[in-house]
Computed example of a mutant assay.
Amino acid sequence: MPWWFWVLLWIALIALSLLLHVMLGYRLFRKFMATVHDLGDAGKRFTNISPTAETSDLEGALERPAPGSAVFASPEQMRHDYLTAKAFRQEVRRQKRVQRKAERGQPQSLHDIELR
């Protein structure tokens, strides 16, 4: 085979290799931009949620003690406060679970229904 055939063959192979890399780079860039776009949409969606919306139920029902007051409180009082807050949080989660299942038309758990 003549020498110029090898030159043409290598030029074609290098050109095809570069074309492949350009195509893969373009696909990667498009996927990256789609991900960035989705993240931007998610950021816009979650910035509309007020940070006090989720904690407003807790703050209304339970008064928060002053910072540092736990150091001087009795262990019985702290245990009572902890158990009361824990029961309240469980009840709020149960109510949300019952409401969510009712909205979706899913069957309720017997454990949740018996607490009512």
Score class of each variant (00 low, 15 high):
residue 3 W to G: 00
residue 3 W to K: 11
residue 3 W to I: 03
residue 4 W to V: 11
residue 5 F to V: 06
residue 5 F to K: 14
residue 5 F to C: 04
residue 6 W to S: 07
residue 7 V to E: 06
residue 7 V to F: 14
residue 8 L to Y: 15
residue 9 L to A: 15
residue 11 I to E: 06
residue 12 A to T: 13
residue 12 A to Y: 14
residue 12 A to C: 11
residue 13 L to N: 12
residue 14 I to Q: 12
residue 15 A to H: 15
residue 17 S to W: 15
residue 17 S to I: 08
residue 17 S to C: 09
residue 17 S to Q: 09
residue 20 L to F: 15
residue 20 L to R: 14
residue 21 H to C: 10
residue 21 H to I: 09
residue 21 H to D: 05
residue 22 V to T: 13
residue 23 M to E: 11
residue 24 L to N: 13
residue 25 G to S: 13
residue 25 G to W: 15
residue 26 Y to V: 10
residue 27 R to Q: 10
residue 27 R to S: 02
residue 28 L to A: 13
residue 28 L to D: 03
residue 30 R to V: 00
residue 30 R to K: 12
residue 30 R to D: 02
residue 30 R to I: 00
residue 31 K to A: 09
residue 32 F to Y: 11
residue 35 T to P: 02
residue 36 V to N: 01
residue 36 V to A: 11
residue 37 H to E: 04
residue 37 H to W: 03
residue 37 H to L: 07
residue 38 D to A: 05
residue 39 L to A: 03
residue 39 L to P: 03
residue 41 D to Q: 14
residue 42 A to C: 09
residue 44 K to Y: 01
residue 44 K to N: 04
residue 45 R to L: 02
residue 45 R to A: 06
residue 45 R to H: 04
residue 46 F to M: 02
residue 46 F to W: 02
residue 46 F to T: 02
residue 48 N to I: 02
residue 49 I to H: 06
residue 49 I to N: 04
residue 49 I to D: 01
residue 49 I to V: 03
residue 50 S to L: 08
residue 51 P to F: 07
residue 55 T to Q: 01
residue 55 T to H: 05
residue 56 S to A: 10
residue 58 L to N: 10
residue 61 A to H: 14
residue 62 L to R: 15
residue 62 L to N: 08
residue 63 E to L: 13
residue 63 E to D: 14
residue 64 R to K: 15
residue 64 R to V: 01
residue 64 R to T: 06
residue 64 R to Y: 10
residue 64 R to F: 07
residue 65 P to E: 12
residue 65 P to L: 12
residue 70 A to L: 10
residue 70 A to T: 09
residue 71 V to H: 11
residue 71 V to D: 09
residue 72 F to W: 14
residue 73 A to Y: 13
residue 74 S to W: 06
residue 75 P to K: 13
residue 75 P to L: 08
residue 77 Q to F: 07
residue 77 Q to R: 13
residue 78 M to L: 08
residue 79 R to C: 07
residue 80 H to A: 09
residue 80 H to K: 14
residue 80 H to L: 10
residue 80 H to G: 00
residue 80 H to I: 05
residue 81 D to P: 00
residue 82 Y to A: 06
residue 83 L to A: 08
residue 84 T to C: 02
residue 85 A to Y: 08
residue 85 A to T: 09
residue 86 K to G: 02
residue 87 A to L: 04
residue 88 F to P: 01
residue 88 F to K: 11
residue 91 E to G: 08
residue 91 E to N: 11
residue 92 V to T: 00
residue 92 V to R: 12
residue 93 R to A: 01
residue 93 R to E: 01
residue 94 R to A: 04
residue 95 Q to S: 03
residue 96 K to E: 06
residue 96 K to W: 05
residue 97 R to K: 04
residue 98 V to Q: 05
residue 99 Q to N: 01
residue 99 Q to L: 08
residue 100 R to M: 00
residue 100 R to H: 06
residue 101 K to S: 00
residue 102 A to Q: 01
residue 102 A to W: 01
residue 103 E to N: 02
residue 106 Q to M: 03
residue 107 P to S: 06
residue 109 S to I: 12
residue 109 S to L: 05
residue 110 L to G: 08
residue 112 D to I: 00
residue 113 I to K: 11
residue 114 E to T: 12
residue 114 E to N: 10
residue 114 E to Q: 13
residue 115 L to T: 15
residue 115 L to G: 02
residue 116 R to P: 04
